[in-house]
Simulated assay, not measured.
Amino acid sequence: MNVTRRGFLALSAAGTVAAPALLSVSGRALAQSKPIRVGYIADYFGTSLTAIADDQGLWAKHGLEPELKVFTNGPIQIQALGAGSLDFGYVGPGALWLPASGKAKIVAMNALGLSDRVIAQAGIATMADLKGKKIGVPEGTSGDMLLRLALAKAGMQLSDVEVVKMDPSTVVSAFASRQVDGAGIWYPLVGVIKKTVPDLVEVAKSADFYPANSFPSAFVARNEVAEQDRETVMKYVAVLKEANDYRAADVPRSVEITAKFLGVPADPLITESQNGKFLTSAEFVAATRDGSVASWLKGLNDQFVSFGKLQNPLDPKDYYLGDLYSGG
């Protein structure tokens, strides 16, 4: 899941109270706790572990006092990391080309997104049926990635369809008004579209390509913090691991906690939570040690190269601190 994809709260929960721009843990931090600045994105994937850590008092438990800042996307957080105004952040799969280009270090994986879809208007049943048709897609997102994978699987190229680049909210309105024949987009936005176009057809989904092609989201650290303050990084990772296992053990409860934290209705978060694969920390450790995480990241790198985002991406071992996460 990526960055620009997070406009869904405005679409799905119009009129609700927006997430505050700046939050901090109060009444929990110990005097000797280390102050850190942590970014998050206001949706389930981008907030749940931060919300759980806040709800369960995990920051103080692990000796941290966070200043929590909400962002609309991953690239802006990477910019903040580079400017020195943020220590840690969250990015979806569409923004992972930035760590792969040396802009930040991945300190932990978050979840595997299975929410992406290639959808089409009624009467279009397969990717082949989309040949020559207009397809709306937010460029460089996981929806774009899935579209390319689905075309290749069908023996087609991007030039076989008419790609119309647009932001996520425009995809929703364009598809609903039948200005496009198809779209590369994700849940919960697909659910929003279905309210207007209930007979839309899902011609491809991200689960069709798992695990060979995965869409992981991750937590990142400022390069200087990763290189010069491993103790703080380890504390942050410890918080993430504990929150991650809480979520994996009780996703419905984690949705409630996240909705309360964000001040939004739970329904769109429930939909989002149902379209992800949530591994335990032990499973992430195993996936790190057996090379699965590196494989996910290399798969994304290949796609970023094909997008023209990267020419020579770093090897995952150079930007994912897997040894730190797995304990050696």
Rank of each mutant, 00 (worst) to 15 (best):
M1N: 11
K165P: 02
A287H: 15
F45P: 01
V3T: 02
I52D: 00
V225D: 05
I78W: 04
L279S: 08
G140L: 04
L86E: 04
M127F: 09
E256Y: 00
L9I: 12
V107N: 00
R6S: 12
Q32W: 00
E283T: 09
I135V: 15
F8T: 07
A108S: 15
D229A: 10
P265I: 04
L310H: 04
L310E: 06
Y246E: 06
G327K: 02
A221K: 05
K165D: 06
T126D: 03
Y40D: 09
A104R: 12
M1A: 14
R230Y: 04
T50V: 15
T126L: 10
A21I: 05
I193M: 13
A226F: 02
G113R: 04
P211C: 12
F284V: 12
N2W: 02
K241Q: 09
S292A: 15
D290A: 10
I119R: 06
P198W: 09
V171R: 03
Y40E: 11
I106M: 05
L98I: 04
Y187E: 05
D267Q: 13
P20C: 07
L279T: 00
I41D: 08
G327V: 11
G322P: 12
N312A: 14
Q157M: 07
N312D: 07
D160A: 10
F209K: 02
L200C: 10
A154S: 12
E242F: 01
A125S: 13
A80E: 09
S273E: 05
D144N: 15
T126N: 11
Q179E: 13
M127S: 08
L321G: 07
S85Q: 06
V38D: 06
L314Q: 09
A243I: 13
G46Q: 02
P265R: 02
D43W: 06
D229R: 06
G136H: 10
